[in-house]
Design a protein around this nucleic acid. Structure first.
Lengths: 264, 264
DNA sequence: GCGACTTTGTGCGTGTGTTCACAAAGGCTT
DNA sequence: AAGCCTTTGTGAACACACGCACAAAGTCGC
């Protein structure tokens, strides 16, 4: 829009890109690798429980469900923590990955929204086990406030800012209904939280520097449904149409009947 | 291993790759696009509720939290469903995306494991609302079997195969403890299920042709922790070390103390 | 009926992720 | 102590994804 008016419309707009790239590649571990480190860590813990002291990239990769070359490259981003001809020492690797992920310190978590899901989350063992401590349960419903759940007392949402600041909450888990999620998110961010885990089925908007991760059951189901449909009568070409393209009306002219098929 | 023994060790091993690629690029919508279609669909439903009949790629992209070019490219994989100079007709697009995702038919879901999480899932509105019908709740605990939850009676895990086959379950949701997940998974797959949504913190192994999607709270938290650590004292270089590499012992020799720091 | 304006659909350059394949490196055996 | 065997760490090729920028295409006003 205003770009073409204020600058000559040439082909090389490379300058702003490179700055951003340099900035991110700084000492950065690739995002895809970061997402897999917890999986490796879990597999390593399992090996530890079985008393295994050393593991090869091949074995660990199998346990983690990935390609062994990928695993080696991932680990190489943390440093050279393997011994050629032998493999990786489990305990040492556990420590290094834990350190890289920031699990050598405790993170304080608050759960906002204590419905079915919020209660399930509060009771989830995976929280307490490794570095995450739930320090607050908050809800807007006066009927739930005051209830005791998993050793915590549900507090009113009005206490949100106080709880976050006084207890040093750095990760907020949003388990509210969709309608409340953005408001709650804005409040936790304003109170200083920079990491949000969102279970509400909405796209949250946050300022730069705040991380949001989304867990969305219904999206996962829809993705599964897509592939399931493909398997049933899709590109395998076992059923009717070998090329199932649009067959009905050739444009958006009458739209009243489509919605029937969806909501019915 | 046996590759280098049976074939000359040249540099071009391109033939097997291309076959697989051709096969997958067949009529396929990119996986990244598939993962975003549910987000677009949700945004479109929201627009519908507000009585908006037409939307531009820019507006829809903003609502979905993505770049408008990406949105247009994603939608272009479904066909040319826009009108230049105008935008997209909401209802028509809802229909097309729903159809592509396989939401014009109903999918029968069974939830295995009725603990805190399983109960929360059973009551989750996102299930019933759009094309997913929970037709079974199963658990191994005799103390829970027979309970009524959200209009369903919890059945014993022994009924698993019967429930799946008689009710036409095509998606299994595994919400069991980690130890039971793989066994349950094997059983649902043997019973004919080809789509699994796994909430248990394990890597499930399934045969070719079966899709598994994973929802893992603890992994998400760990990813957040990683970024949070970076923000606090990482590459911003505000604290002590500007280059925080390994400082202690230079190799895996004594490993007994690392685990302390992690589990303590 | 025509021109100006808006918005789609996409070609293209770029960056990120994945995989193969192999040299370098270390331990183990003889 | 020398060579063999195993396994890491990584260079390079390939595949996927992203976003800019623009031509094509259609609408709306006059």
């Amino acid at each position: 829009m205003f770009r073409s008016a204020s600058s000559p419309p040439k082909k090389q707009a490379v300058t702003p890109r490179q700055i951003r790239t340099r900035e991110r590649a700084d000492r950065g571990i690739p995002e895809a690798t970061v997402a897999r480190l917890p999986v490796y860590l879990r597999a390593l813990h399992s090996l530890q429980d079985r008393g295994i002291a050393t593991v090869s990239s091949e074995e660990l990769a199998t346990a983690a469900g990935v390609n062994s070359a990928k695993l080696r490259k991932d680990l190489s981003h943390l440093g050279s923590y393997g011994t050629r001809g032998v493999g990786y020492e489990v305990e040492y690797l556990v420590y290094q990955i834990s350190r890289e992920l920031g699990l050598t310190q405790d993170w304080v978590v608050a759960i906002i929204g204590v419905g079915n899901l919020g209660r399930a989350l509060a009771g989830y063992g995976g929280f307490a086990s490794r570095g995450f401590r739930v320090a607050g349960l908050l809800d807007a419903d006066a009927g739930i406030v005051g209830a005791h759940i998993c050793g915590l007392t549900v507090e009113h949402i009005d206490e949100l800012e106080t709880v976050i600041k006084d207890r040093g909450v750095s990760i907020a888990v949003i388990a509210t209904p969709a309608g409340a999620a953005q408001v709650v998110c804005d409040r936790v961010v304003a109170a200083g939280v920079t990491s949000v885990l969102n279970f509400a089925p909405v796209v949250l908007t946050v300022p730069e520097g705040v991380d949001v991760r989304k867990v969305d059951l219904s999206i996962e189901l829809q993705i599964l449904a897509f592939h399931e449909q493909r398997k049933a009568g899709g590109p395998m070409g076992d059923q009717a149409e070998p090329e199932y393209e649009v067959l009905e009306g050739d444009g958006p002219s009458d739209g009243a009947q489509y919605i029937e098929a969806v909501d019915a």
